[in-house]
């Protein structure tokens, strides 16, 4: 089983430790992982601003780069969702893409659904309170959890996988899955609103008494992190793979 590691462009530049944690976690679970150097952006920012040509070219490039792998795994629900849920708007007729699509996984999905992870490669003790941040695309498109709007049995992938970690206390914010306001280029199209949404979200996470906001999408964590640093707050955003590898808050 050969895995192509898909590291979204902004994670590559700004959150290399999240990418490294993902790689190390997969390798420590016995996976053969390759990181194709010719990858670039999945095209979501282009698509979300209406650039169909750019989105289409990016989708074809992604397909070309990753079609040779048995699985493609990335530590971002939003970018994975763009590939698996929105490329059809641009390259539905591309048979290579259609073959690739079911093989593309967000890291937590991959750990739970493909590797059927029941215990972590090495025991992790993380004696901290964490507040779960459900990122919108992971939640509502990848079904990471049952969205609060839908009347369905409750489930939450992040809560489930954190059961494998010792000592962690998992908390849920009020309005359990309200958007943090990042929204891709929305965050610079409407910075006042985006920041206001982020401030409200952070306050809800803080109110749980948590020390960390834990999520599976670095983009939301980056946005909330920027507000947290600006206001000098003590709560810290943390990507869930950093907990699972045992790196915890070390980076």
């Amino acid at each position: 089983m050969k895995i192509g590691l898909f590291i979204p462009c902004f994670i590559n530049e700004l959150f290399p430790h999240v990418a490294m944690a993902t790689l190390e976690l997969l390798e420590s679970l016995g996976c053969e992982v390759e990181f194709p150097m010719e990858q670039s952006c999945c095209g979501q920012p282009l698509a979300n601003n209406g650039d169909s040509k750019g989105a289409c070219d990016a989708a074809r490039r992604f397909t070309n780069v990753f079609q040779r792998y048995d699985y493609v795994v990335a530590p971002s629900g939003s970018c994975v969702s763009h590939v698996t849920h929105h490329y059809d708007w641009y390259i539905a007729e591309d048979t290579a893409y259609q073959q690739l699509k079911p093989k593309v996984y967000e890291i937590i999905e991959f750990l739970q659904d493909v590797l059927k992870l029941e215990k972590l490669p090495k025991p992790v003790y993380f004696p901290h309170k964490v507040s779960i941040h459900q990122s919108c695309h992971g939640l509502r498109e990848l079904h990471h959890a049952s969205p609060s709007e839908l009347m369905m049995p409750y489930h939450s992938r992040l809560e489930e996988i954190l059961k494998l970690v010792d000592g962690v206390e998992v908390l849920l914010p009020e309005r359990r899955d309200e958007c943090c306001g990042f929204g891709g280029t929305f965050c610079v199209d409407e910075p006042e609103l985006s920041t206001a949404m982020g401030e409200d979200r952070i306050a809800q996470h803080e109110a749980t008494g948590a020390e960390y906001i834990v999520g599976a999408d670095p983009s939301c964590l980056m946005h909330m992190g920027g507000i947290i640093r600006h206001q000098g707050k003590s709560i810290r955003p943390l990507h869930i793979v950093e907990i699972l590898t045992g790196r915890g808050a070390g980076t």
């Binding site: 590291i7 290399p16 920041t195 600006h230």
Partner: peptide, 23 residues
């Protein structure tokens, strides 16, 4: 800047990208 003007700091800039670290 549009990123910062409403009260949001720019993220810390790592010395190396993941691609560089991976290489």
């Amino acid at each position: 800047s549009a990123w910062s003007r409403a009260g949001r700091d720019v993220p810390p800039m790592p010395a190396q990208s993941f691609k560089e670290l991976y290489q």
